[in-house]
């Protein structure tokens, strides 16, 4: 490659990187700003972190978000796995096409529509049977499960269709009834997919602003709702601090995940070597 072209490519790369990361760096820097006004630098301080840690709203919102994410991820994995199994292993049952469509619809449906329809449902139900009496944790969690489970189902579906069916047949051949096969063979082999699905559902739920805003009620703020409602009244330095903490948490999470993957890969390579040598 000629040096001129490579310099051009390099500057494009730098520009792209800058576009992605400069805003985040700015955000981190300004979270240490000692001034009340975000855009004006007033010296280094941890003042906003202190404000943040003393704010009960933030703690409550964080706790709610994590609680919803956790329950959502768990239910989404359970239901999504069942749906994936039904799609791949039950052959051509009646209404399969309809079922497939309905499973994947939440993936492409605009969030406002999902949110709005769920809100209508909850209000309707409340009028009809008195449940849910108030909107908050339960309604947001249910809303999140409806779309997270679609993602899990897709992950499980792709893992299952890649998995050889003959493993399950071999287990049956050795005397295992279908339910035993599910617990002894299918689910253990699906475990990595289920973990990935769980993590994805967890993240999606933590991330979600639109659907949560539709289905929440007074007093139940998730973290994204809290951040958004505060920002609406203007930039705030304590929110910068909160964002910095979130960035830190995500970075640490990604590093740990990458390290685990690397270790697993190394292990696999070592195993292959051993097998070849023996």
């Amino acid at each position: 490659m000629n040096p001129k072209r490579s310099r051009f490519l390099f500057s494009v790369l730098c520009f792209g990187m800058a576009f992605l990361y400069v805003p985040m760096v700015l955000l981190i820097i300004y979270s240490f700003n000692n001034s009340k006004l975000v855009p004006i630098w007033g010296g280094f301080s941890l003042r906003w972190y202190k404000v943040l840690f003393q704010s009960e709203d933030v703690w409550a919102a964080t706790a709610l978000s994590f609680k919803i994410a956790f329950v959502n991820a768990t239910f989404a994995v359970a239901l999504g796995t069942l749906a994936g199994l039904a799609l791949v292993r039950f052959g051509r049952f009646r209404g399969r096409t309809l079922f497939t469509g309905m499973i994947t619809a939440p993936l492409v449906m605009p969030e406002v529509i999902t949110g709005l329809s769920l809100l209508l449902l909850f209000i309707g139900l409340q009028g009809l049977i008195g449940w849910p009496s108030e909107r908050g944790f339960t309604t947001i969690t249910i809303a999140h499960i409806t779309f997270s489970m679609a993602y899990v189902a897709v992950i499980i579906q792709s893992r299952l269709s890649g998995m050889q069916e003959d493993l399950e047949e071999a287990a049956q051949d050795l005397g295992a009834k279908p339910l035993r096969v599910l617990f002894d063979i299918t689910l253990p082999l699906l475990a990595p997919g289920m973990l990935a699905g769980w993590l994805l559902a967890f993240t999606l739920s933590l991330d979600d602003l639109v659907i949560a805003s539709f289905t929440t009620g007074p007093g139940s703020n998730t973290l994204p709702i809290l951040i958004y409602s505060r920002i609406r009244l203007g930039l705030r330095p304590d929110i910068n601090a909160l964002a910095t903490i979130i960035i830190l948490a995500v970075t640490i999470g990604v590093i740990i995940f990458g390290w685990l993957m690397l270790r697993q890969q190394r292990q696999r390579e070592r195993d292959m070597h051993e097998a070849a040598a023996s």
């Binding site: 050889q164 003959d166 493993l167 047949e169 071999a170 287990a171 049956q172 051949d173 050795l174 005397g175 295992a176 009834k177 063979i185 253990p188 082999l189």
Partner: peptide
Amino acid sequence: VPPYDRPVNMMFQSYALFPH
């Protein structure tokens, strides 16, 4: 008679060993 009740065992061409 389903496979798990047949007095038959099969060795698969692909071996089908349980990887876990």
